[in-house]
Design a protein around this nucleic acid. Structure first.
Lengths: 177, 177
DNA sequence: CTGTTGTTTCGGTTTATTCCGAATATAACG
DNA sequence: CGTTATATTCGGAATAAACCGAAACAACAG
């Protein structure tokens, strides 16, 4: 970590802490931050040195990041080792992360609620629970539906619209009561 | 947990697991699920019995839920004990939770990035890191701005729009390239 | 003031996670 | 093949988080 500027170091440390709040392992988030801030592909050994981590920890961390599809293997000419880099575009990265969280946090509950409501509807035994779970299911279905519609819009378009001034009030005007 | 229907039990257990993925303590999420599914105010003792938890655990959990403003104290006539209930409207609850996560997960990073970019801009010593952090800051600023615009819209309005069919493509049509 | 009921704090145990490093696997090359 | 370089797996130690229960605290009625 010594050949990094102080601000870069601070960023890596903070990104690790933020990762924890996001339910991501601190060291894995730090590896990601390092790759992001360095912008040239690093091999595992270099990551170990930079962050003082065991080789195995880095190996596991990199695989996790690859599973999330925010880190990719790159091969550098004249070097046998695997090198790694993050998605260059932060917006692309953001969308991938949001998608992962949606899959991990929304989908399983959605499935569970559908199943539960299905059972209760055929049972007819517990109208109260049915009512409560239906309300919750409706929420999850709606959020999920909006997300599904939005996720295939090109990033460029999403960013353009998000960056318009007062975008929300503009949308509100289009859909009056 | 025995005087709960099997589906209600399953819901509570699943909600606990989901809570973990959301970075929320499992038992606290279970307490919340219990209050949601029961819909009549419960006192701490009843929660202990239902979930087989220590009185202190429930106490801490309830306080946490009250801090997040998704559980409120209610007083029942002729009973000295505090009773607790969740926000009845799931949408209201959803928005409160999203807001909490925004405060915990976005704001600290936003602040850190602003500070870091400020330092690097005056320094002029590390243009590369400046560029990377500026890109990240731009993302966080944009997301935060859209959220700030949206958060004060009445829940009723948000739900009405979210539930429109093909809402996303409708919005896209309003803002062509 | 005192007993009763209800709530919170706190230390310690239990449980889960993270991380290391040795051992093992895989691949490259002579 | 055997040797070297690289990557991964896995058991267990270090660390962190959750949870309990005893004790302290607070509110209140009589």
């Amino acid at each position: 970590m010594t050949n990094l500027t102080p601000t870069a170091q601070k960023f890596i440390i903070h990104w690790g802490e933020m990762g924890e709040r996001w339910g991501i392992n601190r060291t894995i988030a730090q590896i990601h931050a390092l790759l992001y801030i360095t912008s040239k592909p690093l091999n595992a050994e270099e990551i170990c040195d930079a962050l003082s981590l065991a080789r195995s920890t880095v190996s596991v961390g990199l695989r996790e990041l690859q599973n999330w599809k925010i880190v990719k293997v790159v091969h550098v000419l004249g070097d046998r080792t695997d090198h790694f880099e993050t998605l260059g575009d932060v917006w692309e990265m953001f969308r991938v992360i949001v998608n992962n969280r949606k899959c991990q946090e929304l989908d399983p509950t959605l499935e569970m609620l559908r199943e539960a409501v299905g059972i209760l509807e055929t049972n007819q035994e517990d109208p109260h629970t049915l009512k409560k779970l239906t309300g919750m299911l409706d929420l999850f279905e709606t959020v999920s539906s909006v997300y599904e519609q939005a996720k295939d819009i090109p990033t460029k378009t999403v960013v353009r619209i998000a960056k318009m001034s007062n975008i929300v009030s503009k949308i509100l005007k289009v859909f009056p009561d």
